[in-house]
Design a protein around this nucleic acid. Structure first.
Lengths: 105, 105
DNA sequence: CTTTTGCGTTAGCCTTTGCTTACGGTAAGT
DNA sequence: ACTTACCGTAAGCAAAGGCTAACGCAAAAG
């Protein structure tokens, strides 16, 4: 589906660090900013990009907002990579087959 | 492994178009540049990025250079995404479990 | 009601990056 | 040997992207 935005979002190292921090479960913005080498507004901007890409979901809990990983976009990425993987292996096998035929005059 | 460079390389739309064109098999630079909306030197620069990321292999055949998809970097990307997928599902299940417990006073 | 906490948003700066133009270098064709 | 393909690289430029500082706003705390 929209794997293009997901892969662009995961290209930034800071955004990958944010996603890695959410692997254990949902976290508010302040807890995410602590430990990251950037300011809290920067984290907020990254969270917007990740949420727009479908990688994250935000649930307002009173004063704060809990961000969690959404499996949907990850599934789209895996589908794209699986197709790329299959085609790469097929092209690799075809090339090896051609090379083997060149040894027989 | 080196999945970080691979995901950064695939973030660019032109580079994804190049990889898609190589799904059927290896191609020289000129054939890749034809059909793409950028010039040949731009394609050459993208090929360098993709090759440095481990996504492509270059084999000189006489005057030209054949570029083909290398399955190795794709495997590293799939490993990363599989781990992310597992953690996302586990966190999702844990959150659902917590929510269910809040209905029992 | 006032203060504090927790976030999102904007403006502006600065670095990164993708593109083109121009050039150099090697292999094939004549 | 001379020309013609085919390709990589360097310089230079315009666009994109990430960061900080400053502001505004809603919910909790007092």
């Amino acid at each position: 589906m929209d794997y293009q935005n997901a892969i662009s979002a995961l290209a930034d190292p800071t955004r990958r660090a944010i996603v890695d921090r959410l692997r254990g479960g949902a976290l508010p913005v302040g807890a995410l900013a602590d430990g990251l080498p950037v300011s809290r507004p920067a984290v907020s901007q990254h969270l917007k990009v990740l949420a727009d890409a479908g990688l994250l979901t935000a649930t307002p809990i009173g004063n704060r907002r809990l961000y969690a990983i959404s499996p949907d976009a990850i599934a789209a990425l895996r589908t794209y990579l699986d197709g790329l993987w299959d085609d790469a292996l097929a092209a690799y096998a075809a090339a090896a087959h051609l090379e083997a035929n060149e040894e027989s005059p």
